[in-house]
Design a protein around this nucleic acid. Structure first.
Length: 339
RNA sequence: GCAGAGGUGGCGGAGCGGUCAAACGCAUCGGACUGUAAAUCCGACUCCUUCGGGAUACACUGGUUCAAAUCCAGUCCUCUGCA
């Protein structure tokens, strides 16, 4: 598999956080036009555990997925869960120590263990552990997060190269995350320093929309201006269809968001005529497909009225069909970008 | 027919003198969701309102009380047991 394509073309990766895009079979996932997915180090660490996945052929063998796999470092989830006190644990210079609410085990995620876990999961593109913080950071906090992210990036780079032989030996790519909150100079600084270390990709990290839900394009620009063009430029967590187009225009080429699949499950679907809420009463007698301009399994076979009824009746089939549609809609956007 | 139990908002079901326009659940109607603890969460849900309130409401009709969904009487229904 030639991973260099990730540096040249546009990709949208649905989140298969626990090694599954919710409600889709791997076959259905492929049929949406999806070529790459993101799984999550943190969630897979807790269950079923990296050793189990490794024994079962890595995430690709496990899922029977022959496409590209990214693993998120787990930093974003863990730190947001810890910062909001939803999980017990603490962030420290060596990473984070936390208690899994699932079975109460104590785990430690460090730059090195994060790489180890991602290797065992068997992903194609690894992400360095980054120090992701809350929104509304002071300059001092943002600076600390940048400096720690840089120190961790160095450790990840070193560990990946020294313990595994780097890209040359593994064939895998290593990407890093640019922090700096809404301080443009910190964003630029973080990007430059990471480029200095050298990675296969520079991911825009942190929060991608402001309080009003507007994409932070100025921050994204500050990063893109300081990284190479022929690299992975992954805008993590972006976003709404229009946000993906904006980010692509600025220079990003890879995207992921939970909105696609989560909104589908909640009955909010994307169409060529804008957002439609399938659960709303006006859909009850609507014989038209979700999107007349879509050829997915959902739109080719079923009416809005039928999907409305299934959602109202808690029939899981609707979740599958709407996920297929939303994901197909996103992949169609990506196809147009690649034309 | 006799003996018990009971009739509360679209439904189920709390409340058993004042803080009750009435808990909670469901249904209904909106909305949110951006490196997923999410088939989740939030709001509305008698009518009117200049958003401060106002007017009708707990089977029906009377009554007691400063005050009744809550107490009393009668009426009409429903369920369970015995004939």
């Amino acid at each position: 598999m030639d991973l260099n394509i990730l540096k040249q073309k546009y990709f949208f990766m649905p989140d298969a956080t626990r090694g599954a895009v919710r409600y889709l079979t791997t076959k259905q996932l492929k049929e949406t036009g999806t070529q790459a997915i993101v799984t999550n180090t943190l969630h897979l660490l807790i269950s079923p555990g990296p050793d189990v996945i490794q024994k079962l052929g890595g995430i690709k063998g496990f899922m029977n997925w022959d496409g590209i796999v990214f693993t998120d470092s787990g930093g974003f989830q863990l730190f947001s869960l810890l910062h909001s006190h939803k999980w017990e644990g603490k962030v420290h210079e060596n990473g984070a120590t936390f208690k899994s609410p699932r079975e109460g085990n104590i785990y430690e995620l460090t730059p090195e263990t994060s790489i180890d876990i991602q290797m065992k999961i068997g992903s194609d593109v690894l992400v360095c552990l980054d120090d992701c913080r809350d929104t509304n950071l002071t300059r001092k906090e943002a600076q600390e997060s940048v400096e720690r992210t840089l120190r961790w990036a160095v450790r990840c780079r070193k560990h990946f190269d020294e313990s595994y032989g780097g890209t040359q030996k593994t064939g895998k790519l290593l990407t890093c995350v640019v922090q700096g909150a809404n301080f443009l100079d910190l964003r630029a600084y973080c990007a430059k320093e990471l480029v200095e270390i050298g990675f296969d990709g520079y991911n825009f990290g942190g929060y991608v929309v402001d309080k009003e839900g507007k994409l932070v394009l100025d921050e994204m620009s500050a990063v893109i201006e300081n990284i190479p063009k022929d690299t992975i430029r992954y805008a993590m967590g972006v976003g709404k269809p229009e946000d993906i187009l904006s980010a692509a225009k600025v220079g990003y080429n890879i995207f992921d968001t939970v909105l696609v699949t989560r909104n589908a499950r909640h009955g909010t679907v994307y169409t060529s005529q804008g957002v439609v809420r399938i659960k709303n009463s006006e859909m009850a007698l609507d014989k038209s497909p979700v999107d007349v301009n879509c050829n997915c399994e959902c739109c080719s076979n079923y009416s809005r009225a039928y999907l409305h009824h299934m959602l109202k009746s808690n029939e899981a089939t609707a979740l599958t069909l709407l996920t297929i549609h939303n994901l197909t809609f996103y992949q169609d956007i990506i196809k147009k970008l690649n034309q």
